[in-house]
Design a protein around this nucleic acid. Structure first.
Ligand SMILES: Nc1ccn([C@H]2C[C@H](O)[C@@H](COP(=O)(O)OP(=O)(O)OP(=O)(O)O)O2)c(=O)n1
Ligand SMILES: [Mg+2]
Length: 684
DNA sequence: ATCCTCCCCTAC
DNA sequence: TAAGGTAGGGGAGGAT
């Protein structure tokens, strides 16, 4: 690789570090080279509509309800005064989680909270989808509140004070603010939460039809009453189809289950051969290694970044349009221009009820509301004529390699974001006039080069920091480039929804809305820093306050040492009653596989964590998603690893055995298992 | 403050 | 039928 030439005289970017600029410039010319264990438990909140891509939850989703519940319980116990006060008082509110929306004269909020807590209740500070709330106390009810609260037990603060006075739980309905409504009374007093939504999904999907199999010890509990969705926005336009006869037949056939789930020896290998999420995660790690091997480390800057335009950076974000679809289209030109998607289902038989996930869909399908991550069944409702294409993993990897080799020629300082996405920093002349934009011209040239080499359209976003480059890509898509200039940032960014900022997903979006009434980035800007920090934490508060101004001082990430290696399987985990032998065989396989991945990285580990998902006691036996994990509780068990000569190890037998030991110590009933993972950390 | 441990959350 | 993986940022609570 060429030595960095001296920085050119009269560099217009007097603000930038010379050494850094020189290195960047040189790389523009470079070519691509080619036995103490701990445990903890939490209940996992279930999904909303699992079939809706917007509600897609990654693995380990949402133990938020129970997490907050536990956390609040803990906070309360820490308050010694209250514990003392509670002694001898009847715990009439035990198990109740109460949100106080308003109260009347004659009593203060702290007094109400105190009264609630000393009688065993839990105070819920704010209302959102995930907080478990059994009752709401309100002094009055505007029409909009009436609508928002319609599925809760809404009553008055007097109910609380009177109950406390009486020393017993009075009927909340006697204090109800709601006129009698068409909604039936709630079943047990802990609904109106995400939990209830999942149960409801299950009921709608007909998942409790009582099929018998070795995979169930007891008859299915009665289906919870069907309830209206709490938020109209979540309701699909038409009720989703129930699981098909065929699906039910398979799930009830123990022979079939033994052959197609974790009870089969071959399951693990077959599963990873077909999992697209495994592919993209795994391949990303490969790309990070490739990039690290190809480029030298980022020279340190003399000046720290401010994250503003004055840094004089030019960041490019390159991202294929509907990547898996575009790749598939290279050999299927007849499907161009049509609504299509890539998923495992062939889309023939029971397509209407298919829970197969769409990995990528064409922009024509997106026009109907179809999204990546949605189930095929849901997509069919939105777009009946949608066609499917099979996965072609080798093709994706090959196209991705071509992309990376092209981009490595244009800039050696490059961050592997994903199989279809790259961040890079290129030294270009600054843009003076909109009519002459060297960065944009460079981007169009790169796009053409990518298209020529791969047959796939990529889009490129350009700006002076990572955040804005990524947002620019969204404006560019599909099949174009966009340079987001400093002077247009303010206006552009204010109108975005907060969840369009990278790093804000559904959880933080809901929290911002519930606690601060913040929905757009413009709203976010107006929040005082201390309030933001209180709602989302000090670091996040600072980060997103800066993001809201379009400010992002992050450097490209490259060549960072790996902190952990793990293997997770949260699909197809089904074992017959009492078959501990099959569980043990599977856990050992997962452990051996994880050790293999560790060796592949030339690493050793001193700590193993076993993660086990079990069906939540209130969840239906069969998850809404075919062979999915459904609503679960999760347990993590940690053990120190001891190699044959003491310290760290990469030995498959040791890792497998340690994982099995932790699994045995859990005493989990095999038929309730839904997910198993082994993570190795403390690497050296 | 700063660290550690156990989570949750996010992105693709 | 279907293949809901995985690394890393960061918050909360506690130890130092
Ligand atoms: N829930 C998801 C999201 C993405 N992917 C895979 C398939 C996508 O093609 C690829 C890249 O993800 P992107 O987020 O970049 O989405 P696309 O490239 O499909 O569309 P676009 O980038 O045009 O929005 O990752 C997936 O399997 N499941
Ligand atoms: Mg893409």
């Amino acid at each position: 690789m060429a030595q960095p030439p001296p920085a050119s005289a009269g560099d217009p970017l007097d603000d930038a570090d010379l050494e850094f600029e020189a290195a960047l410039a040189s790389h523009d010319l470079a070519s691509a080279a080619s036995p103490n264990s701990r445990t903890s438990t939490k209940a996992s909140a279930p999904s909303g509509d699992y079939r809706d891509g917007a509600m897609y939850e990654p693995v380990g989703f949402g133990e938020f309800g129970a997490y907050m519940r536990n956390k609040r319980a803990k906070l309360q116990v820490q308050n010694k005064d209250l514990v003392e006060q509670a002694k001898g008082l009847p715990q009439i509110f035990r198990g109740l989680h109460i949100y106080i929306n308003g109260y009347t004269d004659g009593i203060t909020l702290p007094e109400l909270q105190n009264l609630l807590i000393v009688h065993g209740g839990v105070y819920v500070p704010y209302l959102d989808q995930k907080s478990l709330v059994t009752h709401i106390l309100a002094a009055n009810l505007t029409p909009s509140k009436r609508h928002e609260f319609r599925d809760y037990k809404v009553t008055t603060p007097n109910w609380l004070t009177d109950s406390a006075k009486a020393g017993r739980l009075l009927d909340w309905r006697d204090y109800s603010l709601l006129a009698p409504v068409d909604t039936p009374p709630l079943p047990k007093g802990l609904e109106a939460t995400a939990g209830a939504r999942a149960a409801e999904d299950a009921a709608r999907l007909g998942t409790q039809t009582g099929q018998r199999s070795l995979h169930r010890r007891k008859p299915t509990p009665p289906s919870p009453p069907r309830r209206r969705r709490r938020r109209a926005a979540l309701a699909p336009t038409s009720p989703p189809a129930a699981r098909s006869e065929r699906q039910n037949a398979l799930l009830g056939d123990q022979d079939w289950l033994m052959r197609h789930t974790s009870s089969s020896v071959d399951f693990l290998a077959g599963y990873f051969a077909q999992s697209r999420l495994h592919l993209i995660s795994n391949f990303k790690e490969d790309l990070k290694m490739l990039v690290a091997a190809t480029q030298q480390s980022l020279p340190s800057r003399k000046k720290k970044l401010t994250g503003r335009a004055s840094d004089g950076r030019t960041v490019f974000h390159v991202d294929f349009d509907c990547f898996f679809v575009s790749a598939g289209l290279t050999s299927r030109p007849e499907l161009r221009g049509k609504p299509i998607c890539v998923c495992h289902s062939r889309g023939n038989a029971d397509a209407a009820s298919s829970t197969s996930e769409i990995a990528s869909c064409s922009y024509e399908a997106r026009a109907c509301g179809v999204r990546n991550g949605m189930s095929l069944g849901r997509a069919r409702e939105l777009c009946p004529e949608i066609q499917t294409m099979p996965f072609e993993f080798e093709l994706y990897k090959s196209i991705s390699m071509t992309l990376y080799s092209i981009l490595l020629k244009h800039a050696s300082f490059l961050q592997a974001v994903s199989i279809d996405e790259v961040l890079m920093e290129i030294k270009v002349e600054p843009t003076i006039l909109r009519e002459h934009d060297p960065a944009l011209e460079r981007a169009q040239q790169i796009r053409a080069e990518i298209f020529d080499a791969t047959g796939c359209p990529a889009s490129i976003g350009i700006s002076h920091n990572i955040l804005l480059a990524k947002l620019a890509t969204r404006k560019a898509k599909p099949a174009n480039a966009y340079h987001l200039l400093a002077e247009e940032v303010d206006e552009f960014i204010a109108t975005l929804g907060v969840d369009e900022l990278p790093g804000i997903g559904w959880s933080m979006r809901d929290k911002l809305k519930a606690q601060l009434g913040v929905e757009t980035v413009g709203d976010l800007r107006k929040v005082p820093p201390h309030k933001l920090a209180k709602a989302i934490g000090p670091d996040n508060g600072r980060k997103f306050a800066a993001f809201a101004q379009g400010v992002d001082d992050r450097e490209l990430e490259l060549g960072k040492a790996r902190q952990s290696v793990s293997t997770e399987v949260n699909y197809g985990i089904r074992f017959p009653v009492d078959r501990h032998d099959l569980v043990e065989r599977f856990v050992r396989q997962v452990g051996v596989e994880t050790a293999r991945r560790l060796r592949e990285q030339g690493l050793q580990s001193r700590q193993l964590t076993l993660k086990v998902m079990q069906r939540h006691p209130e969840a239906p036996v069969e998850a809404p998603k075919m062979l999915g994990h459904g609503w679960c509780t999760t347990e993590n068990k940690v053990s120190t690893l001891a190699g044959r000569s003491g310290g760290a190890t990469d030995d498959g037998d040791i890792v497998g055995e340690t994982a099995c030991k932790l699994m045995r110590s859990l005493q989990a009933p095999p038929h309730e298992l839904r997910g198993i993972a082994v993570q190795l950390s403390k690497l050296e």
